[in-house]
């Protein structure tokens, strides 16, 4: 089989149906309603449905959500659905509760019915939240400063972090691409000095650099997911690093391309740029990239790993 970056048909179908659902969500639809809809669509059953191919499917779904500006704790909830023991899954997969990863004292989604997971001594563990005080955060999502302790252990944390990193990478790539494409559309319409501003190299070049980084980040995220599905997680941290930097650069470039309109509170960029920024610091944070493991020692990195796996 020759090299191809096309998604498998079933994975492409996931992206398409998530996209269709996002498009059908009425303007101002409430979070709870949207969340239930995603559950009905089968979003939180992806790990179960896709089994060996589930990271690729999750990345595709997350990228579509990023493109459509929907966040909520989907990355966390998908990670939970992929990694938590079977007896905890039902309400999460049904969309009745959200699952969140967090490290006290600051944790997201302080809803009493949310399931919180943390990391303790290298293991994932349920978090028993005793008291919570709401905190306004940059991302705009509900957060709280909590008193909490680790409860039931849920196995090694590495698979959780891997899955979360890939989901977040997908979202960041989608959000970044959407911002850059929207900013480029603005640049091809907005006229100053008798020209569309996209004709000025000072506007065009940063957009080009942003999309260059995002296009690479997309391939890395999808490749890292494919490798992880095949049991090799060595590209995961590089994928997240690449997606985070690319999305951040895209956000800054979009702010700048839109001029004053781009820095309005309700403007076309801030809702996404604030999340992109916070995701870099949110638990589970980016892990250091192990350069040698990610690069390998042969003449290729991404492709090499595939060849190795085929063996």
């Amino acid at each position: 089989m020759s090299l191809s970056l096309d998604r498998d048909e079933s994975v492409a179908a996931v992206a398409e149906s998530v996209g269709r659902y996002c498009g059908s969500l009425a303007e101002g639809a409430g979070f709870a309603e949207a969340w239930r809809g995603f559950a009905e669509l089968g979003l939180f059953s992806l790990p179960e449905l896709f089994g060996d191919n589930s990271h690729a499917a999750m990345v595709a779904a997350m990228e579509t959500l990023g493109r459509n500006g929907f966040y909520g704790p989907v990355a966390d909830t998908l990670t939970f659905a992929a990694c938590a023991p079977a007896d905890l899954l039902e309400p999460v997969v049904a969309g009745e509760v959200v699952a969140c990863l967090g490290r006290p004292p600051l944790v997201p989604w302080p809803d009493a019915r949310a399931i919180h997971v943390t990391e303790a001594g290298g293991d994932a563990a349920l978090l028993e939240v005793e008291a919570a005080e709401p905190v306004a955060m940059l991302s705009g999502d509900p957060w709280a400063r909590v008193r909490a302790s680790a409860g039931r252990a849920l196995g090694p944390f590495v698979p959780w972090a891997d899955c979360y990193d890939l989901c977040v990478s997908g979202w960041l790539v989608g959000a970044g691409l959407d911002l850059v494409e929207a900013a480029s559309a603005h640049a091809s319409q907005r006229v100053q000095f008798g020209k569309t501003i996209g004709e000025f190299q000072a506007v065009a070049a940063p957009l080009a650099r942003a999309v260059l980084a995002l296009d690479a980040a997309k391939v890395l995220a999808e490749a890292a997911a494919a490798h992880l599905d095949a049991g090799d997680g060595r590209l995961v941290t590089a994928a997240r690093f690449s997606a985070a930097r690319a999305a951040e650069q895209a956000a800054i470039t979009a702010h700048q391309t839109y001029g004053a309109f781009g820095v309005l509170e309700g403007g076309p960029v801030y809702a996404r740029s604030r999340r992109i920024r916070q995701l870099a610091a949110q638990f589970p944070q980016e892990r250091p990239v192990d350069a040698l493991a990610a690069l390998g020692t042969g003449s290729l990195g991404i492709v090499r790993a595939q060849a190795e796996m085929a063996r």
Binding site: R103, M137, L138, G259, A260, V263, A281, Q282, F283
Partner: peptide
């Protein structure tokens, strides 16, 4: 600054939001 730096009104996040407007105005 890590996650504590992301509190909406922490000086860290406030500066990030404010300085973004300075390259336009």
């Amino acid at each position: 600054g890590g996650i504590e730096a992301m509190e909406l009104d922490a000086p860290t996040s406030l500066h990030w939001r404010q300085t973004m407007t300075e390259s336009i105005g």
